[in-house]
Design a binder for these strands. Structure first.
Ligand SMILES: NC(=O)c1ccc[n+]([C@@H]2O[C@H](COP(=O)([O-])OP(=O)(O)OC[C@H]3O[C@@H](n4cnc5c(N)ncnc54)[C@H](O)[C@@H]3O)[C@@H](O)[C@H]2O)c1
Ligand SMILES: NC(=O)c1ccc[n+]([C@@H]2O[C@H](COP(=O)([O-])OP(=O)(O)OC[C@H]3O[C@@H](n4cnc5c(N)ncnc54)[C@H](O)[C@@H]3O)[C@@H](O)[C@H]2O)c1
Lengths: 217, 217
DNA sequence: CGCCTCCTGTGATTGACTTCACAGTGAAAT
DNA sequence: ATTTCACTGTGAAGTCAATCACAGGAGGCG
């Protein structure tokens, strides 16, 4: 529902989401000096079954040593290569509001291979200024900046009005994927991907679970 | 993986997530004066198949009029009741950093039935101050404020250090559900639910998809 | 050297969600 | 009144992911 294209891939998208989790835990282990880890160890640490972890790793041909387990360092680089985060890549941001500024000042993205290289807004009070060292461009400059900074991924944190237009323009200018925080349904341009983060919906899901649990009592 | 309990429920969690999307679109339609909507209309608007929409609505006994479709106003209140957002409920927030302040100043939560009633931090520069009208308490006051404001849901936007401790204390004080923005694996206390929002992981997923698509070319 | 133990990788199975397809139905039209 | 039409609700089929369970293998140890 959230995504458009889903053609024959070697690795399932569920697996890809778990790879992020594995990698983060593996990096923790690496910092602690751990060199090898068994499937059941890592699995219990991140809350999956050992069988699922093995299957996830096997889906791209893993190198688990039967006696010693998986090599932590090698697994980190392998997962990074699969995710495409082995090199720092530029991403764009539309909407320098409260949320957009929080994203701009967050250091965690750089650690994971993402650099917010450019921001866009329409508010004259923001255009031209620097936010956490990054220039805020007017939305009119979307196309040239996308080309110049080679943006393939764009984060959407503006207002709902005109969102589809921004998506279509960005897609035409070369953006292939969108991370959308704006609670509005969108049409995914052909060849593109849109991933939604709907915080209110997550709260509603939790509210449902709490309510359901109370009723079961 | 993200959730702990998943006992025999009448409505599937996938359905619940879609209910949020349906409700948002239904509210838009309601504002436009639409009174009835057919499954295929609403389905194409939110990007699901008509069959899935009908099944989702049927899973809690829906009232679709065969000739006119579903009654928009009635469906909104029904979904709200299912999600437990028909009455405004208090939620807590831990961590008044960049992200926490963005969440505090966001008006959208109130519209969906959630009121961030209290915030917690450990930074002396923040404790005691007001943020968007809400008081920031010291983490030491977690338990009494949870009881006083009747918090069942808590949003986590602090640093990774000590996160599990906060969760355990909040759970012991009566919190049943957590929305966690902090990229650290957690242990879910019995009877509780934790929903993660991992923004970096979403970017990694998009990075994977873009990379995969380029390779397919 | 041979046995034993424990782990990985994977075929097979189960379970869950989605999609298909159609019977039943109510309203409008004639 | 009857026919027609399009839509809903749902059994059945299909699809996909998670889990089970075990064959095979690598090292440790006597
Ligand atoms: N802040 C949150 O906690 C939160 C939570 C969930 C969802 N969201 C969503 O994220 C989006 C941003 O939230 P926010 O709190 O930062 O809002 P905000 O009002 O603080 O900021 C919105 C920014 O987008 C800019 N903008 C508006 N239209 C634009 C356009 N067409 N092109 C470029 N920029 C444009 C505005 O000038 C403003 O700077 C909203 O759609 C909101 O619904 C925010
Ligand atoms: N800002 C983002 O865009 C973003 C994106 C993804 C994830 N996150 C995660 O969200 C969390 C908050 O991000 P941020 O950018 O607001 O960070 P931040 O450093 O701006 O704010 C963290 C806040 O939490 C407080 N804090 C630290 N330890 C605490 C504790 N034990 N109890 C209560 N409060 C405590 C700090 O005093 C500070 O006010 C981080 O864990 C971060 O990894 C943030």
């Amino acid at each position: 529902m959230a995504l458009s294209r889903n053609e024959d891939q070697r690795v399932s998208l569920h697996t890809v989401e778990r790879l992020s989790v594995y990698r983060r835990k593996l990096e923790e282990l690496s910092h602690e000096g751990v060199e090898f880890v068994h499937s059941h160890q890592l699995a219990t640490m991140v809350g999956v079954t050992p069988a699922q972890l093995r299957r996830d790793l096997a889906s791209f041909g893993s190198y688990g040593n039967i006696a010693r387990g998986y090599e932590v360092a090698k697994m980190i680089t392998t997962i990074s290569r699969i995710l495409g985060t082995d090199k720092l890549q530029n991403v764009g941001l539309v909407g320098v509001g409260d949320l957009g500024r929080a994203l701009l000042s967050y250091r965690g993205f750089e650690e994971r291979g993402f650099h917010i290289a450019a921001a866009f807004d329409i508010d004259p009070a923001k255009v031209g200024r620097l936010f956490a060292g990054r220039r805020c461009y007017h939305l009119d400059e979307l196309e040239p900046v996308i080309a110049q900074s080679n943006l393939r991924i764009m984060v959407l944190a503006s207002r709902p009005e005109g969102l589809q237009d921004i998506i279509d323009r960005a897609a035409a200018a070369g953006v292939r994927a969108f991370l959308n925080f704006v609670p509005r349904t969108t049409v995914t341009p052909p060849g593109c991907f849109i991933e939604r983060i709907d915080i209110s919906a997550k709260l509603e899901k939790l509210s449902f679970l709490v309510k359901q649990q109370e009723q079961c009592t």
